[in-house]
Simulated assay, not measured.
Amino acid sequence: MKNRKIVITGGPGTGKSSIIHKLEENGEKCLHEISRQVTLEAQSSGIDQLFLTQPLLFSEKLLDGRLKQYIEASGFKSDHIFIDRGLPDVVAYMDYFETEYPEVFNKTCENNRYDQIFILPPWKDIYTSDNERYESFDEALKISSYLYSTYKRYGYKPIEVPKLSVEDRTNFILDKI
C-alpha cells in the first residue's frame, strides 16, 4: 500500500488548521503544523519570537521537525496522510524574509517529495492574528505568493482550494485525492 503524503499549505490565517481538524473528524490521518510548537518552546526559554531574533535557527528546527514528520508519515499504514505544511514552506519563508540558508535546505526539499499539494489562498474574511501569528494580512498575501512560487520551483503543481466553508473545503480536498 503506497502511503501518499498530501500537504495542506497556505499563508498565515488561511484555514489550514481548521481543515486538518475537520479531516481528523472524518477519520483521516493527519500530522499537525509544528511552527507553533517551536515558537512556544523558544518562548519557554525566554525568546519571545525565535523566528525574528534567530531566523536561521528557527528554520533549521522547522526543517528538522518537518523532515521527521515526513519520515513518520511513511510509517503510517494508510493509503494517504495529510500534513499541515511541508518542507518547502521553510524555504518559502526564508526567501520571503530574505534570509540566507545553506544548500541542505534545498536538498532536503528535493530529496523528500510529497505526492500532492493543496494550497489555501489568502482570505481576508477569515484572517485573524494571535500570539504566534504576528503577520498582517498584507504580509500574509506576500507569503502566500512565495509559497506558490516555491512549491512550483520544486516541480509541484499546487491545487488551489476554493474559498468555501470548512466542510466544503475539506470535501473538495477529499474529492481530489
Rank of each mutant, 00 (worst) to 15 (best):
G15Q: 10
L141M: 08
F105I: 05
G46P: 02
P55M: 09
A42C: 11
G155S: 04
N106Y: 05
S45H: 15
D95A: 09
Y148S: 06
C109G: 01
D48A: 00
D48L: 06
I119K: 04
L50M: 10
P55V: 12
L174Y: 09
R4P: 00
Q116S: 02
R133H: 03
Q37P: 05
F172K: 05
Y134C: 07
Y134G: 08
F82K: 00
E100R: 09
D168S: 12
Q54T: 14
P162V: 12
R36E: 01
D168P: 12
T170G: 11
L67G: 00
S165K: 12
I177C: 04
S17F: 13
H32N: 06
V90F: 11
P121A: 07
I177D: 03
S144V: 11
I71V: 00
G11Q: 14
P122L: 12
P121D: 09
K157C: 15
P122A: 11
I117P: 00
E100A: 05
L50R: 13
H80F: 10
D89C: 03
R153D: 13
L62F: 05
K61D: 04
R66E: 05
N112D: 04
A92P: 07
C30M: 06
H32P: 02
L120N: 13
A73Y: 01
E25A: 15
A73D: 00
V90N: 13
D84S: 02
C30P: 07
L56T: 10
P102M: 11
S78L: 01
E98T: 11
P88A: 00
L56M: 14
T99C: 15
G11H: 13
V104G: 08
R153L: 09
E135N: 09
G65A: 01
T128P: 10
Y127G: 01
T99L: 13
I34V: 11
E160F: 00
L67T: 06
L141A: 03
P102T: 12
I117D: 01
R85V: 04
N111Y: 07
D115W: 02
S78Q: 07
P162S: 08
K107Y: 10
Y101H: 05
L56C: 03
D175G: 06
R133E: 03
L40W: 06
S45V: 15
P121M: 12
S165W: 09
P122Q: 05
I8N: 06
G27A: 02
D84N: 04
